[in-house]
Design a protein around this nucleic acid. Structure first.
Length: 895
RNA sequence: GCCCGGGUGGUGGAAUGGUAGACACAGAGGACUUAAAAUCCUUUGCUUGAAAGAGCGUGUGGGUUCGAAUCCCAUCCUGGGUACCA
C-alpha cells in the first residue's frame, strides 16, 4: 500500500497545473530563458504585440487572446532555430492614464509603474515569453528623449509645423484631438461632442506621404479590410482642378499654378474648383462656395446690399452650427444665392454662385461646380431652390433615365463637340483641353489631412521647441534633450486652450540659444507619436547615444508579425507607417514599412445578464435592457432576465481575469482554450465548459505519456534510421510526421484552432494504436512510439509550455523544451501507402474503397466500376465518361 | 448610401473545386462507484425505414462544372468601417 502511494507521487497521469506551472515560470525566469538570442548565421524573427496602455483594470482573458497566439508563433520560431525578438512595453503617455491618475489623485508616473507591474505579473502568469530586459514605458525620459529627437528630425525636414487652425476641441478632456480620434463627431475616448476651436496647433505633414502610404500597402501581408480602411481614409481621387471666372468682374489673367486663387488686385475675381467628373462640365448650372470661402469677402463688392446681408446672415448661421449638427445625416440642404454669376469655361454660359454648407471649406478648394443632373447632392439642392437641371450624360443604350444619373457608364449629350464621347474619353479630352488653355490641371486630391499632434495636457511628451521673444521658434539643442516633464502636484487640464504646463513658470521660462529669455512650447504630443517608433527602440532599447543603432534596426526590422486589434486601423498603423517612411528617407532605417505582416485577433465576449426594461424606462443607446451584475441577476425572476454576448469590460462587469482562469483551470488550459475556441480573427464566446475540455485534453496527454513510458527508448534517435518498420510502427510514424507538418503549417498561418485540433487527433490516434498493440509491442513500434512521445511534447510546447516542460522531465530529459529543436518533418514517412478513395456516380457518393496509394488511374477506375454499392446505380445506364483524381476519387458519368 | 468581413448540426467550428459536419462542447445510453465527481465505452445533421439503405442538406434564387460550402450573377440577413470628400 505504501509502495503504491509512493508510486503515485512520481506519477503524473493527469494535468495538475498547480503542482508545476508556477515552478516552471520560476525556472524560466532564473534561467533567463526568454532573453533575446543572437546566434550567428541564424535567421531572425521579430514577433510583437500592440503596445498596450496599462489600465488599472488589469488584463482580462480577452487581452490574453492577443498575447498567447503571438507567444505560440515566437516559441515555435525559436525552436526552429530563429533568433527571436519578442518584446513588450507600455504605452504610458496619454489621456487615459492622465484621467485615471487625476481620478485616483496619484501622480501618473507612479500609477503607470504600478499598473505596468500588474500587467507584467499577469503576462508572466500565463507564461508568455517576453524578453523583459528590453521593456520600457513611453513615459520614461530615456525613451521620450528620442521621441523629441524624432520630432526635431521632422521639424528639420519641414514635416512638423505650427499654424492657427480650426481644430477638434474635446470639452470633457479639455484638449484638441486628431481627426482620427473623432468618431461621428464625438471624441473616441471621452464621448464628448467635439467643438470647433481656433488655436495655433502643431501638425505633422502626413499628407506629403499620402501617395506612398497608399502605394506601399500593396506589398504588405495585412488583412485586406485594414488595407482598404487605410485607402479609404487617405481617400485618393483623381480629377481636374480648374478656374472659374466671375461674370460681374472683368476677365482675369489665367493662373498657371493650379493652386487655389483669389484675384482681387484689379477687381477680377475667379475661384478654383476640383471635380472628379469634368466630363459633366456642360451640365454645370450653378456653383457653390463653402460659407468660410475667402472669396466671399470680395463678392460683397459686386452685389447689392441685400445680397450682402443675406450672405452674412448665412455665414453666421453656418458658424453657429456645431460640426455634429452640420454632419447630421439626411440633413436638408441650406444655402443662399450670392447675386454673383460664374462663367462656365466650357460653353461660356453664366450660372449663379451660391453659398451652402454642404460644401466643405477643408476639402479640395472649398468650392464646387454643381451638376445637378449627375450628382445627388447638387440635384437635391437644385430641386429645393428651383435651379436648372441639365442632362449631359446618357446611358450608352440611350434608354430614358431618371435624374440624377450618377453612373459613369454613359456617353456625353448636350456637350457640343464632345457629344458621343464616353465618360472616360471625355474626362481625358476635357482635362487636356483645360490644361492646353491654362485654366485647369489634372490633379489628384486626398481626403487625408495633416496629423494634429498638439495636446493641451500634462501627461505627454513635451514638444522640444522654444518660442523666442521676436516670435521665432527654435529647437531645443539635441544635447539638452529630453525636455523633461516637471514633477508637479497639480496638472489638471486648464481648459483655457493651453496645457497646464503653460502655468508653470519654471518650465516655461528658458533662455534661448542667443541667451535671450524665451518661452517653452507648452503643448505635449498626443500618445500616438510615442507609439510610432517604439518597435525601433525594442531593437536597441538601452542605447544612450542614439534612438537605435543602424546595425540593430537593420537586423531586426521589419517586424515580421505584428498582432493586435483592428481598432487601430487608421490611427496607430497609419502614423507608424508614416514615421517609418520619414526615417527611411533620412537614412535611419532600411525598411520603408515597419510591419511586414499584421494579424488582428477577435474579441472575447462574455455572456452578460440584462434585466428587461420596465415600462417607460430609459435605456442606453443600442441596448434592449438594463445591465445588471451576475450577483443581482441571481435574484431577478427568470422571465425578467435575458443574456447577451458582450465584449469583456469593466463597465459591463463581465470580465474574467487571467488569475481566475488560471486558478480554476491552469495557465496551459487557458492558453489552449484561447487558441482552440475559434479562428484567431473571430470573436469568441467565453465558456467554462470549453476550459474544462482543455483540462481534459491536457490530462489525456499526461496519461498517454505515462502509458507510453514502459516502451519508451530514450536513445531512439540513434537507432531509428536503421530499423525495419512493421505496419504498426509505420502507422505511428505516419501519424507523427503528418502531425508535424500540420502543426507547423497551422502555427505559421495563424490557424491555431486547427493546430490544437491536430494535436488532439494525434493523441487520439496514438491512444488507439497503443491499445491495439499494448500486449505485444514490437521493437519497431516501441521506437516509433518513442519518437511520438517526444514529438508530441515538443509540438505541444508552444501552446502548453508548462506541461511540455513538465512532461519532458517525466521522460527523464532535463532542461527546457524551448531549447529543443522543433521536430523535423519527413515527407516519405508521412506518405500513406493505402488510401480510401471515394466513388461517385454522376457526382453522388456511392461507395468508398480502400486501395494502394499509388494505384494507376486504370486500376482505380476498374475497382470503382465493380464496387458493390456502385453496381446497382449503374444498372441500365451507359458509362459516358470516368473522371479519376489519383489517390482521391473516381466519378463515373453515366446516363 | 459607399467600402470591407461573415452566414455550415443543439453550440464553437473543420473542409477554399473532389467523401460536408474534422476536432471539441453539450445531450442520450452504458461501464466503474454504496453514491457522486473524475475516467472509459457507445451514440448524436434532418426525413424515412425494423434494418440494409434511400432521399434531403452549407441564408435564398439562378448559373458554370463530370463534380460547388468553395467559382460567377442576383438577393436577403448580419458584424465592422465610413460618410454632403465634389
Amino acid at each position: 500500500m505504501l509502495a503504491h502511494k509512493l508510486n503515485c507521487n512520481v506519477m503524473a497521469d493527469r494535468y495538475e497545473p498547480a503542482s508545476f506551472e508556477a515552478a516552471w515560470q520560476k525556472r524560466w525566469k532564473n534561467a533567463d530563458l526568454f532573453s533575446t538570442r543572437n546566434n550567428e548565421d541564424a535567421p531572425k524573427f521579430y514577433g510583437m504585440d500592440f503596445f498596450p496602455y496599462p489600465s488599472g483594470a488589469g488584463l482580462s482573458v480577452g487581452h490574453c487572446r492577443n498575447y498567447v497566439p503571438t507567444d505560440v508563433i515566437c516559441r515555435m520560431k525559436l525552436m526552429q532555430g530563429f533568433n527571436v525578438l519578442h518584446p513588450m512595453g507600455f504605452d504610458a503617455f496619454g489621456l487615459p492614464a492622465e484621467n485615471e491618475a487625476i481620478k485616483n489623485k496619484t501622480h501618473p508616473a507612479q500609477m503607470i509603474e504600478k499598473y505596468a507591474a500588474t500587467y507584467r505579473r499577469q503576462m508572466d502568469l500565463i507564461g508568455v515569453s517576453y524578453d523583459w530586459s528590453r521593456s520600457f514605458s513611453s513615459s520614461d525620459p530615456t525613451y521620450y528623449q528620442w521621441t523629441q529627437w524624432i520630432f526635431e528630425l521632422l521639424y528639420k525636414r519641414g514635416l512638423a509645423y505650427r499654424r492657427l487652425a480650426a481644430v477638434n476641441w474635446d470639452p470633457i478632456d479639455k484638449t484638441v484631438l486628431a481627426d482620427e480620434e473623432i468618431i461621428g463627431g464625438r471624441a473616441e475616448r471621452s464621448g464628448a461632442i467635439v467643438e470647433k476651436k481656433w488655436i495655433p496647433q502643431w501638425f505633422f505633414k502626413i499628407t506629403e506621404y499620402a501617395q506612398r502610404l497608399i502605394d506601399d500597402l500593396d506589398d504588405l501581408n495585412w488583412p485586406e479590410g485594414i488595407k482598404s480602411q487605410q485607402r479609404n481614409w487617405i481617400g485618393r481621387s483623381e480629377g481636374v482642378q480648374f478656374t472659374i471666372q466671375i461674370a460681374n468682374s472683368a476677365p482675369s489673367a489665367i493662373p498657371d499654378d493650379g493652386d487655389f486663387l483669389v484675384k482681387s488686385s484689379r477687381g477680377n475675381l475667379a475661384f478654383d474648383v476640383f471635380t472628379t467628373r469634368v466630363d459633366t462640365v456642360f451640365g454645370m448650372t450653378f456653383c457653390v462656395l463653402a460659407p468660410e470661402h475667402a472669396l466671399i469677402e470680395n463678392i460683397f463688392g459686386l452685389v447689392t446690399a441685400e445680397d450682402g446681408d443675406r450672405i452674412r446672415a448665412y455665414q453666421l448661421q453656418a458658424k453657429a452650427l456645431s460640426d455634429t449638427d452640420r454632419q447630421a445625416t439626411n440633413r436638408e440642404k441650406t444655402g443662399v444665392f450670392t447675386g454673383a454669376y460664374a462663367i462656365n469655361p466650357a460653353n461660356g454660359g453664366q450660372v449663379p454662385i451660391w453659398i451652402a454648407d454642404y460644401v466643405l471649406a477643408t476639402y479640395g478648394t472649398g468650392a464646387i461646380m454643381a451638376v445637378p443632373g449627375h450628382d445627388e447632392r447638387d440635384f437635391e439642392f437644385a430641386k429645393k431652390f428651383g435651379i436648372d437641371i441639365v442632362q449631359v450624360i446618357a446611358p450608352s443604350d440611350f434608354a430614358p433615365v431618371e435624374l440624377p444619373y450618377v453612373t459613369k457608364d454613359g456617353v456625353l449629350v448636350n456637350s457640343m463637340e464632345y457629344d458621343g464621347l464616353s465618360v472616360v474619353q471625355a474626362q481625358a479630352a476635357l482635362g487636356i483641353w483645360m490644361e492646353g488653355l491654362g485654366i485647369g490641371l489634372r490633379k489628384i486630391q486626398y481626403r487625408l489631412r495633416d496629423w494634429l499632434i498638439s495636446r493641451q495636457r500634462y501627461w505627454g511628451c513635451p514638444i522640444p521647441i522654444i518660442h523666442t521673444k521676436d516670435g521665432e521658434m527654435q529647437m531645443v539643442p539635441t544635447d539638452c534633450l529630453p525636455v523633461e516633464l516637471p514633477v508637479v502636484d497639480n496638472y489638471e487640464p486648464s481648459g483655457d486652450g493651453t496645457s497646464p504646463l503653460a502655468h508653470i513658470a519654471d518650465f516655461v521660462n528658458v533662455t534661448d540659444l542667443d541667451g535671450m529669455l524665451g518661452a517653452r512650447e507648452t503643448d505635449t504630443m498626443g500618445g500616438f507619436a510615442c507609439s510610432s517608433w517604439y518597435f525601433l527602440r525594442f531593437c536597441d532599447p538601452h542605447n544612450k547615444k542614439e534612438p537605435w543603432s543602424l546595425k540593430a534596426a537593420n537586423y531586426w526590422m521589419p517586424v515580421d508579425c505584428y498582432v493586435g486589434g483592428s481598432e487601430h486601423a487608421v490611427m496607430h498603423l497609419l502614423y507608424a507607417r508614416f514615421w517609418t517612411k520619414v526615417l527611411y528617407d533620412a537614412g535611419l532605417v532600411s525598411v520603408k514599412e515597419p510591419f511586414a505582416r499584421l494579424e488582428n485577433q477577435g474579441q472575447v465576449l462574455a455572456l452578460t445578464p440584462y434585466r428587461k426594461p420596465k415600462e417607460g424606462e430609459n435605456l442606453n443607446l443600442g441596448e434592449e435592457g438594463v445591465l445588471v451584475s451576475y450577483k443581482d441577476a441571481a435574484s431577478i425572476p427568470e422571465e425578467d432576465l435575458f443574456y447577451r454576448w458582450a465584449r469583456m469590460s469593466k463597465s459591463k462587469g463581465n470580465v474574467v481575469t487571467p488569475e481566475e482562469a488560471v486558478a480554476l483551470y491552469g495557465a496551459d488550459a487557458l492558453r489552449m482554450y484561447l487558441l482552440f475556441v475559434a479562428p484567431f480573427s473571430a470573436d469568441v464566446q467565453w465558456s467554462n465548459d470549453g476550459m474544462q475540455g482543455q483540462v481534459r485534453f491536457l490530462s489525456k496527454i499526461f496519461k498517454l505519456i505515462e502509458d507510453l513510458k514502459p516502451i519508451y527508448y530514450a536513445d531512439w534517435r540513434d537507432v531509428i534510421s536503421f530499423e525495419e518498420f512493421d505496419d504498426a510502427g509505420k502507422a505511428v510514424r505516419r501519424h507523427t510526421h503528418k502531425t508535424i507538418r500540420k502543426a507547423t503549417e497551422d502555427i505559421e498561418k495563424f490557424a491555431f484552432n486547427t493546430y490544437v485540433s491536430s494535436l488532439m487527433i494525434y493523441v487520439n490516434e496514438l491512444n488507439d494504436l497503443l491499445k491495439k498493440h499494448v500486449g505485444n509491442p514490437s521493437r519497431a513500434f516501441a521506437l516509433a512510439m518513442s519518437e511520438a512521445v517526444e514529438s508530441l511534447i515538443l509540438l505541444a510546447s508552444p501552446g502548453a509550455p508548462h506541461s511540455a516542460d513538465e512532461l519532458w522531465g517525466t521522460i527523464g530529459k532535463g532542461g527546457f523544451t524551448l531549447n529543443e529543436m522543433w521536430p523535423a518533418f519527413d515527407a516519405k514517412l508521412a506518405a500513406d501507402d493505402t488510401v480510401v478513395i471515394a466513388v461517385q456516380v454522376n457526382g453522388k457518393l456511392r461507395d468508398t474503397v480502400g486501395m494502394n496509394a499509388n494505384a494507376s488511374n486504370a486500376e482505380m477506375e476498374e475497382v470503382a466500376k465493380t464496387a458493390p454499392k456502385v453496381l446497382p446505380h449503374l444498372e441500365g445506364l451507359t458509362v459516358r465518361k470516368v473522371i479519376v483524381i489519383p489517390g482521391k476519387l473516381v466519378n463515373i458519368v453515366a446516363n
